[in-house]
Every structure is written in structure tokens, then in C-alpha cells.
């Protein structure tokens, strides 16, 4: 295996994308709305398409605003339909995001002449190409860094999400644990919910350009779920989820370079490998976790 600067950048970008998703994912997992990440990451498509059609430019800001709006709309519609439509939350999510996703596809087909949006690109992203889009060349300690656009955008999203978590930790905690009490105290759980959902939408858009939507969904859920197996404190869970997110990015990229050669193939998609590694980490932790792990439960039942 040979390692170049570009590999470092791929890992950094992967880790930033994974971290920004995992930070918010903790609260999706705890609110038992994990699939909301899935729904929103699909539903933002019409927002992106509309932003493009209106501004006829792929400027990030318009796309983020479009995505955030559609993210909130997804959350609002999901709640309405499950309240008034006699269906449970999962089904109403399915109704909302498939419809919105389809509208997005139609819009893109209409605008297909001008848009270079390729379905496989949306699914798997193009993380291997992102380091080539260098927009900033700072010099530090006599070394010149070639900072890619994706790293800057995702870095900003990580800072945004981290700031949100730190500022509203108390509100997120109480509205996830006991939304009714929060509401009676004047901490509007719905407001916290919609803030969280719009951040999920923005993060999704920022991340899936780099790593693809499948990884976004995986990183929203798998690292927090792994962390939850290891701890019973909320802040430790958040920290651990970031650790697992970064580990998935690093070992995902290394595996993408190394593993295929064992079977005589060239290297494979880093994004795909990141999701696989995070899944394997979850499986491992599920067995060996000290309190909630299968092994310790088996041991407890057998010998105590």
C-alpha cells in the first residue's frame, strides 16, 4: 500500500463528513427516529433542484437554504400525516420522503440539460475526487497545504453542529428524554426538533456531495448506536460516536486500498468501505461491550 497526501485528505474529508453526521445522529438514535436521517437525506433532493432552478448556479448557500427548508418540511409533514392520517410515524415518513424524492427526480430530469447530477454520484459520492478541488493554499510552518473545498465546507458543518450541541445540550437532552415536561417548562420540544431536522438536512447536503447519501445515512446512525452500547452517559456517547466516526473513515480508506488486493482486485470505493467498517465496528462492540454486550450477558447468565 502506498500512501500519498491525497489519501490523507480523503481520510480527513471522510472523518469530517462522518463526524458532522454522527454528532446529530446521537439524538436521532435516542429519539427513536433513526430513519428520519434516511428520509431527510432523500427528501432534500427537490430542495436542491429548486435552488438550482431558481438561482441557476450550484452555489452552496442557495442549496443549503433549499435543503434546510425541505428538511423542515419533511419533518412537519411527517408529524402531520402521522397525527391526522391514521398511520404511524414510519409509514408517514415513507409517504413524505418518497413523494419529495420523486418530485426532486422529476425536477432534475426537467433540468437535465444543465445539471451534472449523476445518480451514482448521489449514492456513492466522489470522495476520491474531492481532494483535487483545492481552493485554499495556506502556508504553515513552512509547509504549503492544499485544502480542498470539501474539507472547508465539512469543517464548517462540524463546527456548526458542535456549536449547536454545546449551546443546546440541555434542551436536546430534556426534549429527547421527556418532551412533554420540556414543553410544560417552556422549552419548546417542537422547536428543538425542527432545529435538529434542519441541521440534519444541511449536514446531509454538505456530506453527500463528498461521500454519497448511503454513507450519510450510515454515519448518522451506526457510530451513535455503537457508542450507546458502551456508555450510559449522554456526553460520553457523543464523544465516542465521534471516535467511531473518525475510525470508520480511517480504517475505511485503508481497507479500500488494501482489502481488494487480497482478492486480486484494484482498490475500491472508500465511501462504501467506510460504511462496511462502521458496521463491523458495531458488530464487534455488540459482542464485547462490557455491560450491554452479548458476551458479557452470556457470561453473566452462565456463571452468576
Amino acid at each position: 500500500m502506498s500512501w500519498y497526501t491525497i489519501d490523507t485528505w480523503i481520510v480527513v474529508i471522510g472523518a469530517l463528513a462522518a463526524t458532522s453526521c454522527a454528532l446529530l445522529g446521537n439524538f436521532l438514535v435516542l429519539r427513536k427516529m433513526s430513519m428520519m436521517g434516511d428520509a431527510i437525506s432523500h427528501a432534500v433532493l427537490p430542495g436542491l433542484a429548486l435552488a438550482f432552478l431558481v438561482t441557476s448556479a450550484r452555489t452552496s448557500l442557495a442549496m443549503f437554504i433549499g435543503a434546510a427548508l425541505v428538511g423542515v418540511i419533511t419533518a412537519v409533514f411527517t408529524q402531520w400525516i402521522s397525527r391526522f392520517g391514521k398511520v404511524d410515524e414510519g409509514a408517514s415518513m415513507g409517504i413524505v420522503f418518497t413523494s419529495l424524492f420523486a418530485i426532486g427526480l422529476l425536477l432534475i430530469v426537467q433540468a437535465a440539460d444543465h445539471v451534472d447530477l449523476d445518480p451514482s454520484c448521489v449514492l456513492y459520492g466522489a470522495i476520491e475526487l474531492t481532494p483535487l478541488d483545492v481552493i485554499w493554499r495556506p502556508t504553515l510552518f513552512g509547509l504549503e497545504f492544499h485544502v480542498p473545498r470539501a474539507a472547508l465546507v465539512l469543517g464548517a458543518i462540524v463546527v456548526l453542529n458542535l456549536g449547536f450541541l454545546i449551546s443546546f445540550f440541555k434542551e436536546l437532552r430534556i426534549s429527547s428524554f421527556d418532551p412533554e415536561l420540556a414543553t410544560t417548562m417552556g422549552i419548546n420540544s417542537n422547536l428543538v426538533h425542527y432545529l435538529l431536522m434542519s441541521l440534519v438536512a444541511v449536514t446531509t447536503v454538505a456530506a453527500f456531495e463528498a461521500v454519497g447519501s448511503i454513507i450519510v445515512i450510515a454515519m448518522l446512525i451506526v457510530p451513535p448506536a455503537t457508542a450507546l452500547l458502551l456508555t450510559d452517559r449522554l456526553w460520553i456517547m457523543v464523544v465516542l460516536s465521534v471516535v467511531f466516526a473518525c475510525a470508520s473513515a480511517l480504517f475505511g480508506h485503508i481497507s479500500a486500498l488494501v482489502v481488494p488486493s487480497w482478492f486480486g482486485f484494484d482498490d475500491t470505493s472508500t465511501s462504501g468501505m467506510m460504511a462496511v467498517v462502521s458496521g463491523l465496528l458495531f458488530a464487534l462492540i455488540m459482542f464485547v461491550a462490557p455491560r450491554h454486550g452479548l458476551l458479557s450477558k452470556w457470561f453473566y447468565n452462565k456463571f452468576l
Partner: peptide, 13 residues
């Protein structure tokens, strides 16, 4: 994932 003390402290939020 919260402690008993965390839950009680929610009363002050």
C-alpha cells in the same frame, strides 16, 4: 443514557 441526578436536575431547566 442519563443518570438519576441528571433527570432530577431537569426540574431546574
Amino acid at each position: 443514557p442519563v443518570s438519576v441526578l441528571d433527570v432530577v436536575a431537569m426540574g431546574t431547566y
